[in-house]
């Protein structure tokens, strides 16, 4: 009998305790963030969309090699010494490689951050930008190269000329008298 009334009493008491708790929560500050209107402060180490600064990039392709999903596509051209167009890096040194193609496909990117770690010049970094959905997948391929296609053609031509010249010089070297490697040919 005593147990019976104790059960009833604890039932009533716990109900009121529960109601007190919910009443308290009714008036506390809400945790919801109205997302598109207000934003959550991103942590310092957040890894979102990548950004690449061409003046820093030395074209070493380390990022493309380490990328686990192969989302970085890089093409490089050696700078011809005869190229009138010279470019300086941030640290004042002359550019050794032109980068006519530097594309990152964010549809593939897994935001692992390995590329930013291997980059020797910190050219490739994570930004805090994460709202960049697209209706078309092609729009997610971001192009970071600064050279125009004409300039690329120009650089490629210059390099070919340089190569041709070098080849010629090499041939000339070979054709020089006293070269021991091809004495027989000469005779014929």
């Amino acid at each position: 009998m005593v147990q019976y009334f104790k059960t009833i009493w604890s039932g009533i008491a716990t109900t009121f305790t529960g109601m007190k708790i919910t009443l308290k929560h009714l008036f506390t500050k809400k945790v919801t963030i109205q997302y598109p209107d207000e934003n959550f402060p991103l942590p310092e180490t957040a890894r979102n969309r990548l950004f690449m600064e061409m003046t820093k990039c030395i074209g070493c392709k380390n990022c493309a090699k380490i990328c686990p999903v192969n989302c970085i596509d890089i093409e490089t051209i050696k700078v011809s010494p005869e190229d009138p167009h010279k470019e300086l890096h941030r640290n004042g040194k002359e550019r050794k490689l032109w980068v006519p193609t530097f594309e990152i496909d964010f549809a593939k990117c897994c935001y692992c951050g390995l590329c930013t770690e291997v980059c020797p010049t910190d050219a490739i970094i994570h930004t805090k930008e994460f709202e960049y959905s697209e209706y078309n997948r092609e729009n997610l391929v971001y192009k970071f190269h600064t050279l125009t296609p004409e300039q690329t053609e120009e650089k490629r031509r210059l390099l070919e000329e340089l190569d041709a010249k070098k080849e010629k010089e090499k041939k000339q070297d070979e054709n020089k008298p006293g070269n021991k490697e091809t004495p027989g040919e000469k005779r014929e």
Binding site: H25, V31, T32
Partner: peptide
């Protein structure tokens, strides 16, 4: 609204 506020939502 009550359910949301009790659960600290909006």
């Amino acid at each position: 609204k009550t359910s949301a506020w009790i659960q600290e939502r909006l």
